[in-house]
Design a binder for these strands. Structure first.
Length: 290
DNA sequence: GACCAGGGTAACT
DNA sequence: AGTTACCATGGT
């Protein structure tokens, strides 16, 4: 791939192993909306991005070279060698090969760590549509105004300081159910440094996970999602209901517990477990595997 | 009305 | 330590 600035836009050409539709619709990102064919508005890192893909060309509108290199290049994982990863995984077995070929343009985004903590607390026993709604409402109520585009006002995802002002009662009004108190717990433990948020990125994956598990509402699966989408720890394998279905139906072929599925996958896919997980998740959800 | 959604906690054996 | 009821809410 190569990228260049043209007028106020960044144009990326010869972009392979990336599909904007598949990537945004793969259950990892909740702050985007489709405005056209393969055209979206994405909100991340206090910025609003209009982005459109046409085959191997990607246009990021109203973006400087500096902003692209600082934010979006990393956000879309354009620095990762997906050719190599897909080759390695495809050699594992026929099932993962089919999952990769089903959606070869899925990439794992690099999103804001704090936002991932709250977002995946919201994800527990919830569906993607309602997670999206919750993240949007939290941003509108506690985040900062960024700009208005086509009559829509956009707000940043609130920092932990801003979100700390929220009460359980207030959050409950946002219809996020039993997760309200978990968000307050996350804010208070980060504020008091009982959870060492600032150093999470410097810790080993095991240490960081142990730290995250101190927060109520964060269990094994939610912690793995935070480690993956917020810290790019690719050796995890978040086992949710969809992954459970696809792993039991295609790999293990008998009803086993979540822990056993995760163990099986980690042994089978090794250091690339999370990539396999993301392809399988998308494959299972779109094919409605039962 | 039961079951499900990118599960987790707390109260049980 | 291993299992089970319960948790809010909206969609099917």
């Amino acid at each position: 791939m190569t990228y260049k600035q043209e007028n106020n836009n960044i144009i990326i050409t010869n972009l392979t192993h990336f599909d904007i539709d598949e990537t945004l619709d793969s259950g990892q990102c909740f702050r985007y909306e489709q405005i056209g064919e393969s055209e979206y508005i994405v909100v991340a890192y206090r910025r609003i991005l209009r982005i459109k893909q046409e085959n191997e060309t990607l246009t990021l509108y109203n973006t400087t070279l500096e902003e692209y290199e600082k934010i979006w290049h990393k956000y879309f994982s354009f620095d990762e060698d997906y050719e190599n990863i897909k080759n390695i995984l495809s050699g594992k077995d026929e099932i993962i090969r089919e999952a990769i070929n089903y959606a070869p343009g899925v990439r794992i985004l690099k999103q804001d760590l704090w936002e991932m903590i709250i977002t995946f607390i919201l994800s527990a026993n919830n569906n993607i549509k309602r997670i999206k709604q919750g993240v949007l409402q939290i941003s509108e109520k506690y985040g900062e105004f960024i700009a208005e585009v086509n009559g829509v006002k956009y707000y940043s995802f609130p920092t932990s300081e801003l979100l700390s002002k929220a009460t359980v009662l207030e959050l409950h009004e946002l219809k996020i159910g039993f997760r309200d108190k978990y968000i307050v717990d996350a804010c208070s433990k980060v504020a008091s440094s009982e959870v060492d948020f600032e150093n999470l990125a410097n810790m080993s994956t095991d240490e960081a996970k142990k730290e995250l598990l101190k927060i109520k509402g964060i269990g094994n699966k939610v912690a793995d999602c935070i480690l993956l989408f917020g810290l790019h720890r690719y050796e995890v394998f978040p086992t949710d209901t969809w992954i459970k279905k696809v792993m039991i139906s295609l790999y293990i072929k008998k009803d086993v517990k979540i822990e056993e599925i995760t163990k099986y996958a980690l042994e089978h896919f090794g250091e690339n477990s999370s990539y396999a997980q993301q392809y399988l998740f998308h494959y299972a959800r779109k094919n409605k595997i039962s």
